[in-house]
Amino acid sequence: MDETQDPHEDEGRPRRGRLSRRKKIAILTTLLSVLLCGGLAAAGFGLQNRYEKQVQRADILEPPAGPPEEQKQQEQEQEKREKRWEDGPLNLLLLGSDSRSGEPDQASVSGQRSDTIMLLHLNAARNQATIVSVPRDSYVHVPQGGANWSGGMNKLNAAFAFGGPALAAKTMTRLIGVPLDGVIVADFSAVRQMIDAVGGVRVCLPYDVVMLGSQGGWAKGCHQLDGNEANELMRQRYGVPGGDFGRIHDQQLVIKALVEKITKDKVAFNPVRFDRLLTTAAKALVVDRELDIRKLAMALRHIRPDAVEFVTAPHTRTATIESVGSVVILDEAKTGSLFAAIRDDTLKQWVADNPQPPPSY
């Protein structure tokens, strides 16, 4: 396959059985909010085991055993990863996929897409979380993987299409220059029930959002949104400033609002609402086989809403690449310093030194 071929060049055509981009985005942001609230930790270890059984697992970070030298390298990487879980910073890749509802283990199948790509960074002190959004159309090097991809430059989300979450993780590891400690894939949708389970969210917009083709939308200011309305907000790409970057910002606003709502309303202490929320979340997840849900819950248990920060990988411009289409050109210098801050566990300082105002018209 030509290295510039876009696996999504027919993106506008309807696909039977596939999730809409709206649902993919909403699933991931909602699940991330539950994780950041330390939901599984609050549930207690007994309930953790219950919900963990409903989570699908796939070989993502740990591929099937190969030659002895590769096995040894994998064992060494696993030892380093276990040490980071004890006392080091953690980096987890969060992907929103379009796998078909009801089909098992879709995380291992190539040909899907990932329209939402985030990195969750937890500092070594476990009191700060930073969510780094990376535009799905970022023009990056995608390593060899899958049956039809020999490696080369392409859109970031092409990695998922060519080789599933394993190639997406490999691509992100190469891009950032730091090993991943876990991968979480949002697999299928029940997002409306999840948001409605907490009574909706209050989202404050710094700009007007226009729903093209209708009379709807949201004016600048704060709005109480139910599940359907939150979905509609997060799917808007053309009625927000900055296009995809405005949509990324709206995703971040919903995450922040939901984290605050779950914490403020003490949803974890309402057995019925909390069970509904966690059951729906667990069924929507696919994680790498080695990810310990209990360790993740414990790592997140002390992080409060005001300790969660958001950043988007800086870019310089958009461009059109033959056979690939419109791509985002990342700012090499600024993105390089961002990734260095991830490696050095100094993201809080980087965010303070590099404020990112919301997109504007």
Rank of each mutant, 00 (worst) to 15 (best):
A333N: 06
Q71N: 09
L212Q: 12
K295A: 11
D345V: 02
E69P: 00
Q251S: 13
A299G: 06
M194W: 02
V272I: 15
W350P: 02
D10F: 12
Y51P: 01
V308G: 06
R317F: 01
V178N: 05
V191Q: 14
A161I: 05
H249E: 07
T30E: 09
A333R: 09
G221C: 10
P89L: 03
L291I: 07
I184M: 13
C222R: 09
T171G: 03
K170C: 04
V209G: 11
K264M: 06
G242Q: 07
V311M: 05
H141Q: 08
D244I: 11
L258V: 02
E322L: 10
G336L: 06
A313P: 00
I131N: 02
K264R: 15
G12Y: 11
G163W: 07
I262G: 05
H315F: 15
A352P: 00
S97W: 06
E11R: 08
Q74D: 11
L35F: 14
E82F: 03
Q236R: 06
L95I: 14
A313S: 11
K23Y: 09
E290V: 10
M298H: 11
R136L: 03
G246M: 05
R317C: 02
Q349R: 15
P314K: 05
A230K: 02
D244G: 07
H8C: 00
C222G: 08
G227M: 06
Q78S: 11
T263F: 10
Q73F: 01
F269M: 12
V351Y: 02
R84H: 14
A166P: 00
V324T: 15
R317S: 12
C37S: 13
R21D: 09
L338K: 08
D137M: 01
H315N: 13
S99T: 15
G182D: 05
D196V: 08
F339S: 05
D187S: 14
R16C: 00
N127T: 15
V308W: 04
K170H: 07
H223C: 10
D344Q: 12
E70M: 10
K261W: 00
W149F: 07
V185C: 08
E309D: 10
M118H: 11
R136I: 03
S189G: 11
L19R: 14
G96C: 05
I342S: 02
K72P: 00
R235G: 04
K220R: 15
